[in-house]
Design a protein around this nucleic acid. Structure first.
Lengths: 346, 346
DNA sequence: TTTAGCACTCCCGTATCATGAGTGCTAACA
DNA sequence: TGTTAGCACTCATGATACGGGAGTGCTAAA
């Protein structure tokens, strides 16, 4: 089943052409390709083979052929070479990151927008992986008698503040004391390390505090974890540019799916583990996005995988360029965030 | 130029029909209307008049007629009666608001989503009007030596927290003292009441604190005010359902415009002043949304106008139902938020 | 003032047809 | 034996024509 060099060349030419034009490519067009010196008849034979192997599909007799998902997969795994970004592009990206904004979320979002503009595909931002979050400090601040504000400082900056009910009559000193205990016990913990068990062990130290500490940590875990589903999308309407979606019903189905957000699980779950993940067409679970591909890259803060950026486009997307851009954006984003957090922490 | 009763009836019938079907309505269809006992020929004469006055338009000879923006305006101002929501709808809405979520932003967003689902139009949320925000409490929490966390509690709950640089060596007690001073001076102030002037007056009280207090307040104002442009949209892809946007290019132009967000200024600026605002078709500044109407309603928290909800649909939207829904949602949302904030505050 | 009647307009869906890009197959060629 | 030229065949696409139908405006009669 492995392809000989000539078949690979032909397949490459077909894919390149199809990515560019979105219309089925015929044998004659390929025979004109500078790298390929064969008559259209020969190409036809080869294409017939490639179709038999499952790399090509024919919309109908007497049309050219289009690459199958399998072809893209093969292309991505074995054939593609990483594109180089141009000077101008690099400069443009650098310029984007040099604008100083001091809100991490905003930077991430703006990055996704720029990425969308540069690729002309839709992009998405996957929120920080909860296990990358480490507690730094827990502070209970009295607000009114009976209410305290919980401020939890994490390695990513302040990440949660909620009001909790506390028994009346607790003094500021006592709260301060509790804060210190909690900080001592949980500093550098991951969020999933905070177990009921551990809290129970602290009961004797905490004394009367236990009940509201429980509430507080539960809420904190809650907000961090619900955050998980907060995928955000940008530039989705760009997908309407592509002839794949010149049918309004198809377009609507796609945008609906994106807006509902829960259909990118395959891509997303892959994303959290891998440096890059590429999900092509029908590899997605949802049949609605079966002619979309999703490419994601994680970005790291202080060496730790934090979240990911993703690009959503038609299966015939320019994988090579997208990967190059994602890699570059991922790295720059990581650096900027790392610097920002370092600066905040000392 | 004022219309006699018969013309009004006919116009009403045309509008009703057109809202329903989106296709030009002819004289014969109207003559069959139960309320109207006239031959199609008579209707034709009347329609001809209505066209002359500018209430109707004809896509081409031998087509029926469609209401103009002027007609919708007249309809909305003088003819429309508020729709009643059904029992089921009321129940459904109540059910939505009874689910307890303790995050105000999340409630507002979910409300916008439900509103979008019930109307099948796109909806938007305009963020709180900054002048509705009042400070309750300012708290400086030491984090590391040289860094403090600023927590500002407002009448809408905790609304900002930033790390600021402070001179090294300041004691927790001193910070606490500063917090109290700031709270005493600014409690119940609006954000725009915090002027450089007032801070200058406090210099003698604050002593060495002044510089970083300046930084802090500037940042706070910044985050509140940048919030202003944060319009959020929901269910935008629903607009693709309507034949107005069966052309992909038109659809893309619309969605692009929505995503770029800055084109709803007319509607938005109206929204912040009025209880309801209705912007019909070409009354919008941007020609791209010239066949969209935007209806907004403000919601109040503790009697004060906080933000608004908006509905975006084709000009032939069901204004009556949309207004009824907006009114109901606005009120319920206000109540829920008011309760939530009251509960948090004591 | 209303209405019936009629000629006229024009969109729209369908059918027809020519065109052209593309294929598969066969036979000849190197 | 692999490659290529040639040819018949397929089928989407776009242009054109055409009939039907919904709608109009006008005129004349009720």
């Amino acid at each position: 089943m492995s392809l000989d060099l000539r078949k690979i060349r032909i397949l490459q030419a077909i894919i390149d052409d199809y990515i560019l034009t979105a219309s089925p490519v015929g044998s004659r067009a390929i025979s004109k390709h500078p790298d390929i010196n064969l008559s259209s008849a020969t190409i036809r034979n080869e294409m017939s083979d490639l179709e038999e192997y499952g790399y090509l599909e024919q919309p109908h007799t007497s049309a050219g052929r289009i690459p199958s998902d399998k072809a893209y997969r093969y292309y991505v795994n074995s054939m593609m070479q990483r594109a180089m970004l141009t000077e101008d592009e690099l400069k443009f990206i650098e310029q984007h990151f040099s604008r100083t904004v001091d809100d991490a979320d905003k930077i991430i979002r703006q990055t996704a927008m720029v990425l969308s503009d540069m690729t002309n595909y839709a992009t998405m931002v996957l929120p920080p992986n909860p296990s990358a979050i480490r507690l730094r400090r827990i502070e209970l601040v009295p607000v009114t008698d009976g209410k305290a504000l919980v401020v939890i400082v994490t390695n990513l900056g302040v990440s949660s503040d909620t009001l909790i009910r506390i028994p009346k009559g607790i003094t500021a000193d006592r709260l301060h004391q509790l804060s210190n205990m909690l900080t001592d016990n949980f500093a550098n913990c991951r969020i999933e390390d905070i177990t009921a068990n551990k809290i129970a062990l602290m009961t004797d130290i905490l004394g009367s505090g236990k009940e509201y500490i429980d509430e507080m940590l539960a809420r904190f875990k809650g907000t961090i974890l619900t955050n998980k589903s907060n995928v955000e999308f940008f530039g989705t309407s760009k997908l309407l540019d592509y002839p794949e979606y010149s049918d309004v019903d198809k377009a609507k189905a796609l945008l609906d799916t994106i807006e509902r957000k829960d259909s990118f699980k395959t891509a997303i779950s892959g994303a959290s583990n891998l440096e890059f993940s590429i999900t092509i067409g029908s590899e997605n679970n949802d049949p609605i996005i079966k002619d979309c591909s999703v490419v994601t890259a994680t970005y790291r803060v202080s060496g730790e995988k934090l979240g990911s950026l993703g690009v959503i486009g038609p299966t015939r997307m320019d994988y090579s360029r997208v990967l190059a851009l994602l890699e570059h954006f991922g790295k720059s984003l990581g650096t900027v965030l790392t610097n920002m957090i370092d600066e905040e922490n000392n």
